[in-house]
Computed example of a mutant assay.
Amino acid sequence: MVRLGVHPDTTSTVWMKPVKFDYSDFTFSPPSISVSLREERLVVQVHFPCAANRRCSTKLCCPISQLIDPWTTVTMNSDVNMTSQQSRTVWTHDVVSYVEFSGLSPGQNYCVVANFSFPTFSMAASPKSDPQCIRTTDANQSELQSQLLLGIGSTFLFLFLFLFLVVFLLKQRSKTTKSRSAPVPVPLPPSLVPVPVDPEDVHLELTEDDHQITVLLF
């Protein structure tokens, strides 16, 4: 029950008739979602709207999931069969809610919507979020991508081996050229080979003939 009081003066208060306030009067903004594929599963992240709470800073967003633990319902359907849809309802205890779907068909477009409600009171529910869609990979396309990656890897491996072989051959050729261009020492004839001489074996002999001096070394 909510009543509004008016103060005509500082000493008295005039109260209006009480107004009943029910959970059905709650109004929420829709959540926002993001979808992704992970190992053949569709993963949905549900982000809740900001709560108008005086404990939160005006510059920050306090998701409503910080104040309550809402029931979150996520619904998924495909473009091929709109009547065949999957729905998950979880009790959210975190700021962001995560829901996963499996059993996806390859090459189809899946769209997801989500909303949340006040715990135990489904009458106080938010509108559904804007749909987010994602397309699963086709089986033939996946096989083609695998073959393409295998071909690219094989090409890089062949180029690496080819470059390694070229560098190896260039190094071997450089070594052969250097060995051929190095000068080969020519041996001296025996008559020109210097023989070590002991100073004690050298003898001097002086002879004087017609005012000339001849020095003989033995």
Rank of each mutant, 00 (worst) to 15 (best):
M1H: 08
Q145G: 04
T27E: 09
P194W: 10
P119T: 06
L60E: 12
L192S: 09
D138G: 15
S24Y: 01
S84N: 15
S105I: 03
S57H: 10
R54E: 13
D138V: 05
L60M: 09
V193H: 05
L170R: 14
P196G: 11
L204H: 15
I213N: 11
P194Y: 11
S174D: 04
D69R: 07
N109D: 14
I68P: 02
R88K: 09
D69Q: 14
L188N: 04
S24V: 01
F116L: 01
I64M: 13
L150Q: 13
S181N: 12
F21G: 01
T75C: 04
L60T: 07
F156I: 12
Q212K: 13
C62T: 12
M1W: 14
S87M: 14
V6R: 13
V99C: 01
S142G: 03
T177M: 10
I134E: 02
D79L: 06
A51R: 08
S181Y: 00
V184L: 07
C50D: 14
R55Q: 10
P70H: 08
I33G: 06
D25Q: 14
A51Y: 04
W15N: 07
T177G: 06
K171Q: 09
Q212F: 11
P183S: 01
I64A: 04
F162D: 04
C56Y: 12
F118T: 05
R3D: 11
F164T: 07
S29A: 11
K17S: 08
A114Q: 02
I68M: 11
S102H: 12
E40R: 02
T177W: 10
L60D: 13
G5S: 07
R180M: 12
N77E: 11
E143Q: 15
G151V: 01
H7T: 06
K178S: 11
S105N: 11
R180I: 07
R180V: 06
A139L: 10
S12H: 13
K20G: 02
A114H: 02
S179E: 15
Q212V: 11
V99Y: 00
L4H: 12
D22P: 06
S126F: 03
D138W: 04
V96K: 05
L161A: 12
D130P: 00
Q141N: 07
L150A: 15
S154K: 11
F158D: 08
T11L: 13
V80S: 15
L159Q: 03
K178G: 06
R180Y: 04
A139Q: 11
E100W: 00
T10C: 02
S97M: 04
V80L: 15
M16W: 01
C50G: 13
R54V: 14
T58C: 04
E143F: 07
V184R: 08
I68C: 01
S34I: 00
T176E: 15
P18F: 00
R88D: 00
P196W: 12
S142H: 09
S142C: 02
T13H: 11
L192Y: 14
D198Q: 09
L204K: 15
S142A: 09
N81L: 08
G103I: 01
R88S: 02
S12G: 01
Q45P: 00
K171G: 06
N81H: 15
R135L: 02
T207F: 04
E208A: 03
E205M: 10
T58G: 14
G151C: 12
V44Q: 03
R180A: 12
S57C: 04
S129R: 06
